[in-house]
Simulated scan of single mutants.
Amino acid sequence: MIELHLFPLSLAYQQERYLRQLIPALQLQHWQRRRQHADQLRSILAHAATRLLLADKLHCSPLAIRFQLEPQGKPVISYPDSAWHMNISHSGQWVVVALAPFAVGVDIEQHAGAPEVELIRSCFTPQEQQSIHSTEDFYRAWCAKEAALKAAGTGFAISPLELELVPTSAAQAQVHSPHPILNGLHVGSRLWHQSYSLAWCSQPPQGQPKYVSYGLSDLQKHIKRHVIADNFTNICNSSHYHEQ
């Protein structure tokens, strides 16, 4: 089963100093060169949350986990040895971490207005264009394509026009492509919090993912298990953790 763990960006503002302790210094230095603080925080929250979640599954310290990049740039766990795969995405006020015991891709996008006709033509085949009638349709299909490219590990080394989404249900589709690495992948999508589209991709096909969204007290519980800080305070009395 695919697990989709969703974190609002507000958690990064509230817990930035502790999240930074979970990320190697060289990686932090790279992000600090970004101009916008919000961009830094999205990356910090995404990578710190990934390390926290994997540390619980792999029974190790978050900082002990090592990643390496595949030829096209997809990060995979190199230490400790593990059957788990991960993928991350962030947009606007949300960060999502996908975990699965097989290759997985995920994408989340905040709706940013109606796309131009030329953009639709450059991303979708004529058959796909027939099903794009609204901004929501565009982002749903776009997220599904990007999730497939991320699951395959190719990124945009392969053009979005070189894969076609063939619907198998209202919310799922199979990927048809001349590239064997993409052909046969399965994608699913949904609307998230009214103005975001969320999509995931896997091979073999899966049912609905397990959704887990986090509030402040839930993130703090994860941090407290792995970060030793004498002045760690302000623990919430009530949890906002819920599964959907």
Rank of each mutant, 00 (worst) to 15 (best):
Leu54Val: 02
Arg33Asn: 10
Lys210Tyr: 07
Cys143Val: 10
Ser82Asn: 01
Arg42Glu: 03
His59Lys: 14
Asn237Trp: 03
Ser217Val: 07
Leu11Gly: 03
Gln21Ile: 03
Lys57Tyr: 10
His226Asn: 11
Pro178Glu: 10
Leu163Lys: 01
Pro204Asn: 06
Lys224Gly: 09
Tyr13Gln: 14
Val97Pro: 01
Leu45Tyr: 00
Cys123Glu: 03
Ser134Leu: 04
Leu52Arg: 01
Arg35Ser: 13
His47Thr: 05
His242Arg: 14
Leu4Met: 09
Tyr139Phe: 15
Arg121Gln: 15
Gln27Arg: 15
Gln130Val: 13
Ser202Asp: 05
Val175Gly: 02
Val96Lys: 02
Gln29Trp: 01
Arg35Met: 10
Trp192His: 06
Trp200Asn: 01
Cys60Ser: 11
Gln208Met: 08
Ser189Lys: 04
Trp94Arg: 03
Gln32Ala: 14
Arg140Tyr: 09
Ser159Asp: 13
Ile120Asp: 00
Arg66Met: 08
Ala112Met: 07
Gln172Phe: 08
Ala83Gly: 12
Pro180Leu: 04
Pro167His: 07
Gln194Phe: 04
Asp137Phe: 09
Asp137Lys: 04
Glu3His: 12
Leu58Pro: 06
Ile23Cys: 06
Phe138Asn: 07
Tyr79Gly: 12
Ala83Gln: 06
Thr135Arg: 02
Trp31Asp: 08
Tyr241Asn: 08
Asp230Thr: 15
Gly73Trp: 11
Glu243Leu: 15
Ala152Asn: 04
Gln203Val: 08
Thr233Phe: 12
Ala229Thr: 12
Pro24Ala: 02
Gly92Asn: 01
Ser213Arg: 08
Leu99Phe: 04
Gln72Asp: 14
Asn234Thr: 09
Ile120Gln: 03
Phe7His: 02
Gln194Tyr: 11
Ala38Pro: 00
Ile88Ser: 04
Ser131Glu: 11
Met86Gly: 01
His193Thr: 14
Pro8Gln: 12
Ala147Ser: 15
Val106Asp: 12
Ile44Glu: 00
Ser131Leu: 08
Val95Trp: 00
Glu70Cys: 13
Trp192Cys: 10
Trp142Arg: 02
Ile77Asp: 01
Ser217Cys: 07
Glu70Ser: 11
Gln93Gly: 12
Cys236Trp: 12
His85Ser: 07
Pro80Ala: 11
Gln15His: 01
Ser213Leu: 15
Leu6Val: 15
Ala55Glu: 05
Asn183Cys: 07
Val106Arg: 06
Asp81Ala: 13
Thr168Phe: 04
His59Arg: 15
Ala170His: 06
His111Gly: 09
Asp56Tyr: 05
Leu198Thr: 05
